[in-house]
Design a protein around this nucleic acid. Structure first.
Lengths: 190, 190
DNA sequence: GTGATTTCTTGATTTTTGTCAAGAGCAAAA
DNA sequence: TTTTGCTCTTGACAAAAATCAAGAAATCAC
């Protein structure tokens, strides 16, 4: 079983080997160089991407700065969900932070999964519910924690990321400036 | 067409009158008094509730304080999604802020919708995707806005709420103290 | 390896937000 | 009506976080 199959199995609970094969066959492996964009805001996002290796940064540009919304590591899916599902212009940009291998599926092929795998919509729903719960959790962290507490919590659960990506992006993702991030970091190292 | 039917039609895009009727018939109207709980954290949330009239506050209790996650007004659904879907103990508590009329459906009956309405899981998925996008938006507001900007944005879109519920709950929901909320409010009134 | 970028750190300072405490305003209960 | 809670406001102060500016460290391109 390929890694992609394993991930899809664990995220969606597809157990039937044949279905799994059908799904995975619709994904195409591509590579993307460090710094290149998988998606630029304003364009329609007609792909759903899966990180086989490497790192993707999803961010929103405002007048003053770029807000990093999330960093996708190996095993994560990445897309502008709103744009992908409703075919509206995307707000997010997605950029590779290092050379990356991406399994990618087009919207058209993605639709086929729903036709080919009977229970797909239900499994998909459960997957999105889990994503929803993660966001709820994240909102809660902003309502109830200080910057330092958010740092600690994130660090405990994502230690590896800290020596793989520019820290300013993690800072942005946690809702603080790079300076604040750096000072908290110093404190934690003592 | 009842209001509940209209809301379900607009949220889920169910067009078939018969299906709509089936769905709505599974909801039971109940009333709940101001201050009473629809759900207490720790219990399993086996209902999905729809606010026909009144106001529900969803909050999470921590050691020090209660964090208001959301206030549901007429036309909103309310549940601890994690608990409802995965049948785990709920983290949220749900309390009526005023006497309220609630259409409620049990998990068992909710499952029946999926069996009775062929496209239900797909419609449901789209609904949850929209909820997901709203949460993404909310996270963005915490990553990129000050307390005052969050206040302004929320006030513009929810003016009515400000004279219906204790303001401390709105403050909590926006991630600030009642004092900060009060000061921003004063500034905006000048 | 060297120079040029980019990223990270640090200090000084300002702004924002939180905390604590007291009092005012209001609404429900006795 | 008076009393009792609750909610909201205000002030003084403290803490947290942002900003600005400079320099150090790391990384990249040649």
């Amino acid at each position: 079983m390929t890694e992609l199959e394993q991930y899809i199995k664990s995220y969606f609970g597809v157990v039937n080997a044949e279905d799994l094969n059908t799904i995975v066959s619709l994904f195409k492996l591509t590579t993307i160089k460090k710094g290149d964009f998988l998606l630029k805001s304003g364009k329609r996002c007609d792909h759903l991407s899966f990180v086989q290796s490497g790192l993707l940064r999803m961010f929103i540009s405002t007048d003053e700065k770029e807000i990093t919304q999330w960093i996708s590591t190996k095993g994560y899916f990445s897309t502008d969900l709103s744009s992908f599902v409703f075919e509206t212009p995307s707000r997010l940009s997605i950029q590779a932070l290092v050379d990356s291998e991406i399994y990618s599926i087009t919207k058209a092929d993605y639709r086929k999964i729903g036709e080919l795998v009977p229970k797909w919509h239900e499994l998909e729903k459960l997957f999105i519910v889990r994503c929803f719960i993660i966001l709820e959790e994240r909102i809660f962290s902003h309502l109830s924690m200080t910057a330092e507490e958010r740092y600690d919590y994130f660090f405990q659960n994502n230690k590896e990321l800290f020596n793989q990506v520019p820290l300013q992006y993690i800072a942005s993702m946690l809702g603080m400036t790079p300076e604040t991030f750096s000072r908290i970091r110093k404190k934690q190292l003592l």
